[in-house]
Write a protein that binds this DNA or RNA. Structure first.
Lengths: 347, 347
DNA sequence: AAAGCTTACGAAAACGTTTTCGTGTTGATA
DNA sequence: TATCAACACGAAAACGTTTTCGTAAGCTTT
């Protein structure tokens, strides 16, 4: 029982392909009799038009390409769920490519999809891409007339629609919260500067301190190497943080730029016999499962990832359907929200 | 700068489309001169054949459809990462559909993809599908000549390749481990029976008790309703479990069929002043972030999700490329592994 | 009865490929 | 010089659609 096509229906009912096509779209160019006969037949044998043929004809695939650095990752999957939601609502499919934080995989994946498989991209660039600053694949894609929407890790060098989290502001609010909770010596655990969001969050941290006239102590900024993010290095990560905490015993508040750093900081604090939140208050970024289920539960900056995904998909689909690829481009900023839990409770 | 096609190249170089096509595939039907000229031109302007046109011609899309119940979910994303890995290695793309545990969304999503967009499916069915026992969409897909590989939540009613976790065996090993650690009153926190894997894990639990001649106490089996899995019910979940623990004070070991249940059990135990692992030992299923970062860290049954995904993609691609859709079908069982952590430590 | 107008349908092009087959030119062979 | 192979290329079909255009048959109008 192979797939039914217009041609087969035409043959079976002894009419032409055009007649079948028109009858199925209920064109009154075809007599009522013939129309009903054809429609009944199509329904009976469950005819569905071939998507690929339609794509070729219409020069649109109704498919969005999504490129993310990782998929086993709470934030990115939350975003994807938002993308999928509006894509489905508007009749689009979602094809996923993973860069695994690698520049070359990002390029290969985009190449693979850019050749007609999709109508546009939604992408958060790999760490390595940010580091190398090689954006030729993005420029080429745009030059070919394929729209891109960047989210979260965006690049100012690229002219396209963007959806970002207000990283700096979220960090600022978090640090202000720590200050208001009584912390005076606030440390930050962050990434190296080439990660755009890490840098932005660090900026917010510094802004909050300045705002409250707390002097910036360079030693309080712990910038961790990318390798420490790997699964197998979680013990090492906790140790590095423990050393840092031991070297700076005055620290009474920690702002960490992601969940893992925050949880590792809490673990390290326990090693050192510090009580959370009494001796040390901790705030993380990204409101994932880990924050909710940690003990003590973690106060964090929630990014509203799903909403972010919805906005990104919306921007892309709107641009596609209006068939308007030129500037102006839009940058949507999704506000963060501080979710207060046990790790910052006051006594 | 629109997409380059064979036709445009042909026009530009004043040859026929066939010549261009042949030259690009390095056919020596074309003179060396012409070949080089065409290849140089194609390279210069970065020609890439249109995937959609190829798909139409070859009647294969080199794309796999993956249908999962949820994407913000550690196990499923781990599986997807495995699928994506071997798919990419073999030149396939991955298109993702989410059922959100809903039967109708599963059907709609499969319908959308089955009309030519993909070559085959990899699916873990929605909870509601298991409950309704309506599998017409799966049967129809298979009847249309499109292969399916089921994973994790598989259906015996469907004749296709399958990849499963040895749920029963993993549960059995976990419970034996609790017994060997000295537990004599072991409870299980599980799902309702219509969830296939929940039922299997419950079976393993019962088998282990029987094996060690420990009488089965019906009251020790806590079957939780699906609604308690929702994000907003996490407090409710902990309370239900606390009540259960209070009603059965003799319980000194808990086997939970997923991470959330296990963590909620630990939280509930803390409410009741029970110390883990001294008063109560806990083992979960699924080795996700939560287990690693919990305090105390959680002993769990690891499912090797990535391997599972790799196997599933392998089975599907092999069947596609051998163009052999008939039985026999294969069922691969991926072994689980008990990862021991603090929640079962002995003193 | 000639002209025009509906009605109901079919032929063919187009989307971008690959591939089969046909054909004109060249050079070698008989 | 006539025949034939090799060479180098082009025409056309096919994949499954949609859509434009053409047209035969039947009808109405004058």
């Amino acid at each position: 029982m192979q797939k039914l096509t217009l041609k087969k229906i035409a043959k079976e009912l002894d009419v032409s392909i055009s007649t079948v096509s028109k009858a199925l779209s209920d064109s009154h160019e075809i007599s009522k009799d013939t129309r009903q006969k054809i429609q009944a037949f199509a329904k009976l044998y469950n005819y569905r038009p071939n998507n690929i043929a339609l794509s070729l004809k219409n020069k649109k695939t109704k498919t969005l390409g999504v490129i993310i650095p990782e998929i086993v990752h709470h934030f990115f999957t939350t975003v994807v769920s938002g993308i999928e939601k509006v894509a489905n609502e508007r009749g689009y499919n979602v094809i996923i490519g993973l860069s695994n934080e690698s520049f070359s995989k990002e390029v290969i994946n985009m190449d693979m999809l850019a050749n007609g498989s999709i109508d546009g991209f939604i992408i958060s660039v790999a760490r390595e891409t940010q580091l190398k600053k090689d954006f030729h694949h993005l420029h080429e894609t745009i030059n070919q007339g394929m729209p891109i929407v960047m989210f979260d890790r965006v690049l100012p060098e690229i002219a396209c629609d963007k959806v970002v989290v207000d990283d700096a502001e979220g960090a600022r609010k978090a640090v202000l919260n720590l200050i208001d909770a009584g912390c005076r010596n606030i440390g930050i655990i962050t990434t190296e500067d080439h990660v755009s969001v890490g840098k932005l969050r660090t900026g917010g941290y510094e802004a909050a301190l300045k705002e409250r006239n707390i002097p910036l102590d360079e030693g309080f900024e712990l910038k961790l190497k990318d390798e420490l993010n790997e699964e197998e290095n979680i013990e090492e990560l906790a140790k590095v943080i423990a050393t840092y905490l031991k070297d700076h015993p005055a620290i009474d508040g920690i702002f960490a730029v992601n969940e893992i750093y925050a949880l590792s900081a809490m673990k390290a604090a326990r090693y050192l016999g510090k009580h959370i939140p009494k001796d040390l208050k901790v705030i993380g970024f990204t409101d994932g499962m880990l924050s909710k289920y940690a003990t003590p539960s973690l106060t964090t900056v929630s990014q509203h990832g799903k909403l972010l995904g919805e906005k990104a998909a919306f921007l892309l689909i709107e641009r596609l359907e209006k068939d308007h690829l030129e500037p102006p481009f839009e940058t949507i900023i999704v506000e963060t929200e501080l979710v207060e839990r046990e790790s910052t409770k006051q006594f």
